[in-house]
Design a protein around this nucleic acid. Structure first.
Lengths: 186, 186
DNA sequence: ATGGTTGTAGACAGATCTGTCTACATGCGC
DNA sequence: GCGCATGTAGACAGATCTGTCTACAACCAT
């Protein structure tokens, strides 16, 4: 989940805006980041920005969609790189939590910040978490309890995500997560 | 964790401010809540407010302290009301998650919102979570693994907290939490 | 009774934030 | 080559937010 860099030369204005918004929203929070900051940092004109995103809420929605795509792709890749079995889960999560730019889960953070003023982020977050649970189920053995088990593991991952957001190092969170996953898988 | 009401007649201005700030900050978020709103809703003059809390950050710190006291007292009570043993944990948490005013963990939400602009909330949240883990350890049998086990359960509770914040009902979160606690305690 | 503390009511300054508008440039398809 | 989409630069309006300031009242202890 390190910040990805684009190889090709000239990204469109929309892409530059979205990428900049992603980095700022994720690092500093959505409310703390002003439109003017996104505009200045992505190097586009104000009118250009408002042509692509008529309101800040449109940008927020696009940010969460973009984040979802990026994160799910990274997670699927990380799981397969670590063997693609149940034992891949904790190391894959650990990779993320150790990333220097780690700032917690964009969806959890956004719900906390915006649930009151932009209720649809709750729906978006729910969808995201359901997809994460499905990705976890995909690496579990196909038993009768697989779905329930994946949900429990996904919930434990959420716990590790917020714990690692507080602590100096993610080690305690990963220890606890490992213990839970091991206990759940017998 | 339902909102507590004060029996005695005349709370001081400071108490009224703190109580109002707590309710608004918790319900709508810290950044989304303006000082003017707190002042209007607590029925106090602006100068009075600024005499007690020279800046919004002072109010935020007081809010988190207040929340910590209130929540820990409620949690200890809930644990003892449900028997004071390991089996009290899930029902106690369930009581909270089912509260109509439930909006997630004030500390998790605040870290997401404020970590960038007010770094000390991270420290405050860490202390809070350590106290929660200690309260959980207190209801576990005194084995050699007690502390590690309490940390794992506390982490699973954090997972249930955020999951219940997304979902329509807390049932799935409580199911998963119950499954994890059961697996951890053999 | 006098001074300090605590309170009310509300105007005001200064910053910041979202969103609009004018004026102009460039490149591409038809 | 003409029109249109897309782009730049930046002034401007209007709302909102934090924090200061003036003017005045009630209460309590010394």
């Amino acid at each position: 989940m390190a910040s990805s860099t684009q190889a090709s030369a000239a990204p469109s204005a929309r892409d530059r805006i979205l990428r900049t918004a992603h980095d700022l929203f994720y690092r500093d929070g959505v409310r703390a980041t002003g439109i003017d900051r996104v505009i200045a940092e992505s190097g586009v004109a104000k009118l250009t920005f408002y042509r692509h995103f008529p309101s800040k809420n449109d940008l927020i929605r696009a940010y969460l969609d973009y984040r979802h795509q990026r994160w799910m792709a990274w997670f699927a890749d990380a799981l397969s790189r670590h063997g693609g079995g149940p034992d891949a889960i904790v190391p894959a999560v650990g990779e993320w939590l150790r990333d220097p730019g780690y700032r917690g889960c964009a969806f959890i953070n956004s719900v906390g910040e915006l649930a009151g003023s932009l209720p649809e982020v709750v729906e978006i977050a729910r969808t995201h978490k359901a997809d994460v649970a499905a990705a976890i189920a995909a690496v579990l053995p196909a038993t009768r309890q697989r779905s329930k088990l994946a949900q429990a593991i996904a919930l434990a991952i959420d716990g590790a995500i917020v714990r690692a957001q507080f602590d100096e190092t993610p080690d305690a969170a990963l220890d606890a997560l490992k213990r839970i996953v091991k206990a759940l898988l017998e």
